[in-house]
Design a protein around this nucleic acid. Structure first.
Lengths: 225, 225
DNA sequence: GATGTTGTTAACGTTTGGTTAACGTAATTT
DNA sequence: AAATTACGTTAACCAAACGTTAACAACATC
């Protein structure tokens, strides 16, 4: 999932890139409307989402959107702007924008709005799938896909795997995981989690590059070579 | 194109109704979350857009959205609220909202946002007949036609099937369906719904490409190959 | 009143997923 | 080295969830 970002404020551009990359998106950052349009034109089918700052020198976000919409009516466009003028907002929507977010905004809200737009844009694949070794893991559906097979995970399996995946290459604290998934960290819940770790090891064992490592006395770590 | 509006401020409710009606929409105005949910449940296939005020007595907009999303993952939901708290905004999106607009807002912006969302969601107007595998299903008449046969469905059969068809390929929450069709999710209503699921499986079994799948502990999903 | 229709509930069963037991190995502490 | 704690693995157990068929109750129609 690749996002084209046009933002002339380098701090915000960097922040956006870092944040969205951490959330699993590939980001192409451009710092002017001209560059954005050029990037788009170089590979128009590459981008699944476009984030446009309105106030940019030379070619502003509106001009870019107008140009893009001439040849692409589908790729979602979300405008970012410091200006809160109502006429501008309406203009953005008229140009075919999907949303319009006023600075300053919470990064989490931006992400929520991106998700909402993608949810209705790609109803067939409502949730992003995470690449996990040879598997494609869908947290929402609780499915693990590989070649021609799809394995459905149980609720507990999915909860535990999603926690490990979200903290890939980092140790997930044993007691914390127990409290988060089982509600408290009693002895038997701990044994239950060990059972589920074994289940996940068995399922993921089809791909030898995936390992769930125990860090003694601390917790578990999901690693992929 | 019918919009369900829930707004307890009668001035704003009237304004919304007048404005949207003038823009060509049919509006069902409700003044409480409870009434909104009841209106929705009475004819779930009627509405193509839902406008929910967040702050309403008894059942707030969030609670309404939560209940609706159990049995309808697609119909667009836009929240209106006087509160601009960020946590609330994120909560709205997590519940499956498509947009979130803070009062006071320009009516024209509301309309633009509705259009932007509808542009993406291809709203399904209730039609005379829906193609369902080898069957032609008429929700209004409660009939299933196939080759030279027409089967008449009972009220409960029709309510359940229309809910499954509306959410084809999506899981319909068991408890949500029970509350929507039977009024509450007690044990015996659950057993009754299981009986009706069996009835529908028997009726639809004439076409082997149609399956009603149980997702354990969650609900049912209608799938067609 | 007899009959038909629809919805509810009973009865018996299967499936599912989570918990716990049991036996063991690995790591740390004494 | 021995004892203790932490974790690995497999399977038994159990209750909840659900599938199916039929009996029963309530209501409508003739």
């Amino acid at each position: 999932m690749k996002i084209l970002v046009a933002e002339d404020d380098s701090n915000l551009g960097l922040l956006l890139t870092t944040f969205l990359t951490a959330k699993g998106y590939e980001v192409k950052l451009t710092t002017s409307g001209t560059d954005a349009l050029e990037s788009y034109r170089n590979s128009p089918t590459d981008f699944q989402f476009i984030l446009l700052d309105v106030m940019m020198p030379q070619k502003d976000g509106f001009a870019v959107a107008k140009e893009i919409r001439l040849i692409d009516k589908k790729t979602p466009i979300l405008f970012l702007t410091a200006k809160s003028m109502e006429a501008d907002r309406l203009k953005g929507f008229e140009l075919g924008a999907d949303d319009y977010l006023t600075k300053p905004f919470l990064m989490e809200e931006l992400l929520a709005r991106i998700h909402a737009i993608l949810r209705r844009t790609n109803p067939v694949e409502p949730s992003a799938e995470i690449s996990l070794g040879e598997f494609d893991y869908n947290i929402s559906l609780g499915t693990l896909k590989r070649t021609h097979q799809t394995q459905k995970l149980t609720t507990k399996e999915n909860a535990l795997l999603s926690l490990l995946v979200k903290n890939q290459n980092e140790v997930v604290d044993r007691q914390g995981a127990l409290r988060a998934i089982w509600g408290d960290d009693s002895y038997f819940n701990g044994r239950s989690m060990d059972v589920y770790i074994a289940k996940l090891r068995k399922i993921l064992g089809e791909d030898p590059s995936i390992k769930i490592i125990n860090v003694h006395g601390i917790g578990f770590k999901l690693m992929i070579k």
